[in-house]
């Protein structure tokens, strides 16, 4: 197998990691129209919860479901307790709160679970495929991410609750007039994003290994992926994540030194914001003034 195919397949595998977290970023954006910088750390924390449950003897999928549920509740609580009081504050306040949350979650995880790298079980066979460029687990991650995408799509498209959440995010005042409890919809959005993040964390932990800094690097790439695909489009975010994963490998191998891989992700973010702020598939935000 040539290096090119290997690099592309490896890129798809890492891209799937970015895609799953990008999905959580899109989720929170859809629900609240803001980008949560603590999303990665919340996902990391959820993964530690899953790890604790697995250590306690729960079978993998039971721990997985329970973690998703706990994370959902945790997300709702964070919105109610921390985000709600600053809801009407300027965007900068939100950014600072999110960054504070990021640092706090990271430090608390380190304090509780220590910084020693922990292995995390995978529900999928770890057999290397295609000459080791990708493993059974990587394929599993891609499938789970796609399944999650379908679920979210269906949820927002076909359920009344999904519709209400979209309405609350896009036009809170009219939504309120239509009898939607906007505040609770925002909290639900946080809960859902935390749940999606938990799935992402549990899926990537066997690849990246679990430690408190597991998600700090991923967040930036996921952000690049989400922006590339369009921060308002779940499908776009998944595709964007995969594209970033592959391009990052190809650029790092053939064009520039691997020192600049991270810069590539940042260059993506800037390029997209300058040329097409809505991303490849995002809707263009039109605000009536």
């Amino acid at each position: 197998m040539t290096q090119l195919t290997q690099q592309i397949l490896s890129g798809v595998a890492t891209g799937a990691v970015y895609a799953s977290l990008a999905l959580a970023l899109v989720m929170i954006y859809q629900a609240t129209e803001s980008v949560n910088f603590a999303q990665g750390e919340m996902a990391m924390f959820s993964t530690y919860i899953a790890w604790t449950l697995v250590q306690a003897g729960l079978p993998f999928w039971a721990a997985f479901l329970l973690t998703v549920l706990i994370s959902f509740i945790g997300g709702v609580l964070i919105e109610r307790v921390i985000v709600r009081p600053v809801h009407d504050a300027p965007v900068l306040t939100h950014v600072i709160v999110f960054i504070g949350l990021l640092v706090i979650l990271n430090a608390v995880a380190g304090w509780i679970y220590t910084y020693t790298v922990k292995e995390f079980p995978s529900p999928f066979p770890s057999k290397p495929l295609f000459g080791g460029a990708i493993t059974g687990h990587d394929l599993g991650v891609i499938c789970v991410t796609l399944a999650m995408l379908m679920l979210l799509f269906a949820f927002f498209r076909f359920t009344p609750l999904g519709l209400a959440m979209r309405a609350a995010a896009q036009n809170p005042e009219s939504a309120k007039l239509a009898g939607i409890r906007v505040g609770w919809m925002l909290a639900m959005g946080w809960g859902l994003a935390a749940a999606v993040g938990a799935v992402a964390g549990v899926m990537v932990a066997p690849v990246l290994f679990l430690d408190p800094n597991m998600m700090s690097g991923v967040l930036l790439y996921a952000f690049a992926g989400a922006l590339l695909g369009g921060i308002s489009s779940p499908g776009g975010a998944v595709l964007g994540g995969l594209i970033v994963g592959v391009l990052e490998n190809l650029v790092g191998t053939y064009l520039i030194a691997s020192e600049l891989k991270l810069s590539t992700a940042l260059a993506f973010i800037i390029l997209v914001l300058v040329i097409k702020p809505s991303g490849l598939f995002g809707r263009v935000a039109i605000k009536r003034v």
Partner: peptide, 20 residues
């Protein structure tokens, strides 16, 4: 030689390049 940054999520790509 291939380097990585501590912010890189994985070093898979570097290892593939080194093998090749």
């Amino acid at each position: 030689t291939k380097s990585y940054e501590t912010s890189d999520p994985t070093v898979d790509s570097q290892v593939v390049a080194l093998m090749n």
